[in-house]
Nucleic acid binder design. Structure first.
Lengths: 152, 152
DNA sequence: AGTATACATTTGTATATACAAATATTGTAT
DNA sequence: ATACAATATTTGTATATACAAATGTATACT
């Protein structure tokens, strides 16, 4: 399906705009499916990302600023995002003893268990979402996306 | 920049997950820049998309359902989205005379003027956002994205 | 020490979004 | 005609998000 078909665009778009729009549209399709899976586990995408970041810390706690820095999604109000996860007891928070301005956030055993349960499911869904591409095409796509990001 | 670097991921991801995440992350970078431009013109991304869809109608009005169908973004509550645009006088709404359940939405001259003003700016921004890729690479990227969408 | 500045997080508030239920209109079957 | 289902939109409500201002803590300067 071309992006013109998907959006019912008749006017001819320049290649650059077409690519930018296509990227966002395609991404949105994947995001929605992913959000659907997470919802079954009472998680939103930003919440899931926070959990994943915390697991990546391998035992070390992370500050709020650290989490924000690594979020894929818009990251405003990480405080309240973490509040939700605390209420579910998937993370815990304490004031950093060395610097009481900072806060140390850590994933709990329950949080790790949820992620562990989700791991095969997210892997499976991701695989399904990109199954239209061969391995070689996946490598190419990754390379192009990485190149795009160097732009910053 | 690889996606592992961007997200500070040390664990090795399978190629499929990596690609899915990379796609969403890269897309988000573009989206944010685009939203920044629109904001200067008091527009959100969904609002901009509605205007663009209406312009694409070339004079024919569109129903709410028609707009929803064509939206790139999540499309819940198109009613209130259109309300915002009406308040700015960039679109107008009237009940469809043939079927009074339906509503006919049309872009105004002011709305068209705003889009016209934005056209070169969005084109320029899109071009800048993908400038790291050659024309050939852009074509390849588009092809891969189109292929990915056939999955539905 | 006292004051100003920078830093990290939290809170207030306005707006946006998601989801379900409600409303209004039309089409269909009896 | 009447009742019932289908369609298109709107509204209520809870939650999420964005942005700015506020809070509390640490650092630097005099």
């Amino acid at each position: 399906m071309t992006i013109e078909e998907a959006l019912h665009i008749s006017a001819k778009l320049d290649l650059e705009s077409k690519t930018a729009i296509n990227l966002q549209y395609t991404s949105r399709l994947l995001e929605e499916k992913f959000a659907g899976l997470l919802k079954e586990y009472d998680l939103t995408t930003p919440q899931f990302n926070v959990l994943r970041i915390l697991r990546g810390q391998k035992g070390n706690p992370a500050s709020l600023a650290c989490i924000q820095e690594r979020m894929v999604d818009r990251n405003s109000n990480t405080t309240r995002l973490v509040d939700k996860l605390i209420k579910k007891e998937w993370v815990k928070r304490r004031v950093c003893p060395d610097n009481r301005r900072m806060v140390e956030i850590e994933i709990t055993a329950e949080g790790l268990a949820v992620l562990k349960q989700l791991d095969p499911l997210t892997r499976e869904l991701n695989a399904k979402n990109v199954e239209a591409l061969t391995e070689e095409e996946l490598v190419t796509l990754n390379t192009l996306l990485d190149k795009l990001k160097t732009n910053e």
